[in-house]
């Protein structure tokens, strides 16, 4: 990673605000993700982490502020355009097409990016990352277990080379041994030059591979800095104060 590209952030949020109807979710959120870096986005439930991810990928419009992807303003771009520009977003919860088979889910993602010829190769690589998916390639994704669906969602983006990968609730519902595999795969992705934005329940685990940490509290950025600083003040930052005095 050259210093030039370090200085050139691949994803930038500038003063972003967003709402769901009457509910304001984000207030003036700014941070940037250097190319090839790993940023852990943490905060309590309802702090706005998912909304940040959705604004970045174009699912939710920003009501104010700008989003820059590789220097291009993508604030008003549609989600599919942003996806084609190199930002992949694995949403929280069920993020696969339940009415399509495992293989169709993967094919849908690969065909646009790789063309017809590249699909078979990409499928093989996906099944290599998660062999379990290969065993179930003909099964409807909706009938997979919750954890297998997460694997499927991740394998879609792990195989394709992206500039930025935003993963919401990375290890949610995954067995510990699979979480290991996922982090291993993320390591590979990162060494390929992809920047990562991780939203992760297991904060300490995310910190092991993060270069920087952004903490959200009630829709605002409460901390933007290095891992050590965040780890030291984690309780205060994430929970909005010292933990309630335990009896």
């Amino acid at each position: 990673m050259s210093t030039a590209s370090q200085a050139d952030p691949v994803l930038v949020l500038e003063g972003v605000s967003a709402s769901y109807g009457p509910y304001r979710a984000l207030f003036d959120v700014s941070f940037s993700v250097p190319a090839g870096a790993v940023v852990a986005l943490v905060g309590a439930n309802g702090a706005g982490k998912s909304t940040v991810a959705r604004v970045a990928s174009g699912l939710v419009p920003a009501s104010a502020g700008r989003v820059l992807l590789r220097g291009h303003d993508v604030t008003r771009r549609r989600a599919f355009e942003i996806a084609r520009m190199g930002l992949a977003h694995v949403t929280e919860g069920r993020s696969v097409f339940g009415s399509l088979t495992v293989e169709e889910n993967l094919t849908l993602a690969f065909r646009r990016a790789l063309g017809h010829g590249g699909v078979a190769d990409a499928l093989a690589r996906a099944y290599e990352v998660f062999p379990r998916l290969g065993e179930r390639r003909g099964q409807l994704a909706g009938t997979l277990s919750g954890g297998e669906q997460r694997m499927l969602a991740l394998s879609r983006v792990l195989v394709l080379r992206q500039d930025v990968l935003v993963v919401d609730e990375l290890s949610l519902g995954l067995a510990p041994v699979v979480v290991d595999e996922v982090y291993e795969a993320l390591g590979t992705v990162r060494s390929g030059g992809t920047a990562l934005v991780l939203i992760e329940q297991h904060v300490n685990r995310a910190f092991t591979i993060a270069d920087g940490v952004v903490v959200l509290h009630k829709g605002r950025v409460a901390y933007d800095g290095d891992v050590a600083g965040a780890a030291a003040r984690l309780d205060e930052l994430v929970l909005g104060g010292p933990p309630a005095a335990a009896p």
Partner: peptide
């Protein structure tokens, strides 16, 4: 929306 995330 999920289809758009796949670039479609």
């Amino acid at each position: 929306r999920m289809t758009e995330l796949a670039g479609v």
